[in-house]
Design a protein around this nucleic acid. Structure first.
Length: 263
DNA sequence: ATGGTAGCAAAGCTA
C-alpha cells in the first residue's frame, strides 16, 4: 500500500515547519507539490532529502513551480506538458515511480472569466486533455493530481450563486473542461470514496481564501483533485483531505489531498 | 462588498 498526496503549499520555503509536521503524521510515499514558488537553486533540497525523499522539480522564480517528492527513486521524468511546450510557466511535472505514472499539475487560476488569464487557463486545460488522452492509451496506472482551480460540481463550493454567475473556479466553461477529462476515462479518486450525495460528505473542501475568515466559516472549495486512470482506480483503497493543516500557524491556503493505492 | 489576506521581493503582481 502506498500513499500519494498532493498539496499546493503556496511557497515551500515559508512552509517547511508545518510541512515537516504533516509528513510525520501522513507519511506519504509520493508527494505532488504545487506553488513551490522558487527556482531550483533555492529549493530546500537538503531538508527534504533528510526527510527521506527523492526530488524532481520544475522551478520558477516567485510564481508557480511544481515538484514530485518520492521515497522510491523515479524514472522517466517529464518537465512541462509535452502538448504545451511553448508554456513559459512551471505548472506540470510527471514521473514513473512505484509502478505508477504520477503527475503534479497546477492549472492556472484564470483570474476572471473572459480575461486573458482565463484564455490561458482554457488553453492549458486543452493541452492537459491532449496529453492526458495520450497517457491513457498506455493503459497503465496513472495519477494526474494537483490544483485544478476548478470546483467541478455545485456541491464542491460553499456558494451556489457563484456557479450561477460564472465566477472563476465555478464557471460552466471550466467545469466542462474538467468534465471532458472525466469523460475521457479519468476517475475522481476522492469522490469515489466520498460521494457527494451522502450528507456526511458535503462541505469537504481543499481550499479556503486567506481573506474574510473563509476557513473559520468553512467557505471553501474543492479544487484539488486526483484524476485516476481506470487501472489506478482499480487500485484505490482510500482517499481523504487533511484540513487541520489549515489551522496551523502560517498555513497554506490549500489543504493536502491524498489517496492510498494497493501497490 | 471590487475589499478583504498572503507570498515574493522589494512595487505591484498573482492568487
Amino acid at each position: 500500500m502506498i500513499t500519494v498526496a498532493t498539496w499546493n503549499v503556496n511557497s515551500l520555503r515559508t512552509r517547511l515547519e508545518p510541512f515537516k509536521k504533516w509528513i510525520n503524521e501522513r507519511d506519504p510515499d509520493v508527494i505532488l507539490l504545487q506553488e513551490i514558488k522558487c527556482q531550483e537553486e533555492h529549493f530546500p533540497r537538503e531538508e527534504i532529502e533528510d526527510l527521506g525523499y527523492n526530488i524532481s522539480l520544475l522551478g520558477q522564480k516567485s510564481y508557480n513551480g511544481v515538484a514530485i517528492l518520492s521515497k522510491s527513486p523515479v524514472e522517466d521524468v517529464v518537465y512541462g506538458l509535452p502538448s504545451f511546450q511553448e508554456d513559459e510557466q512551471a505548472r506540470y511535472i510527471e514521473a514513473f515511480v512505484n509502478g505508477v505514472r504520477v503527475a503534479s499539475v497546477y492549472v492556472p487560476n484564470g483570474q476572471e472569466v473572459g480575461s486573458d488569464k482565463f484564455a490561458y487557463k482554457m488553453a492549458f486545460l486543452k493541452a492537459l486533455q491532449a496529453h492526458g488522452n495520450d497517457l491513457l492509451k498506455q493503459n497503465e496506472p496513472l495519477v494526474i493530481a494537483g490544483d485544478y482551480n476548478i470546483a467541478p460540481f455545485i456541491s464542491d463550493g460553499h456558494s451556489p450563486e457563484r456557479f450561477k454567475e460564472d465566477r472563476i473556479l465555478c464557471s460552466l466553461q471550466e467545469r466542462e473542461a474538467l468534465r471532458t477529462l472525466y469523460n475521457s476515462g479519468f476517475i475522481d479518486g476522492f469522490r469515489l470514496k466520498h460521494p457527494s450525495f451522502l450528507p456526511k460528505n458535503q462541505g469537504l473542501f481543499s481550499w479556503w481564501d486567506y481573506r474574510s475568515g473563509s476557513y473559520q466559516n468553512n467557505k471553501g472549495y474543492l479544487i484539488d483533485h486526483f484524476l485516476l486512470s481506470p487501472k489506478a482506480a482499480d487500485l484505490l483503497q482510500d482517499a481523504g483531505i487533511d484540513p487541520e493543516t489549515r489551522s496551523e500557524e502560517r498555513p497554506s491556503d490549500h489543504a493536502p489531498v491524498w489517496v492510498k493505492l494497493a501497490i
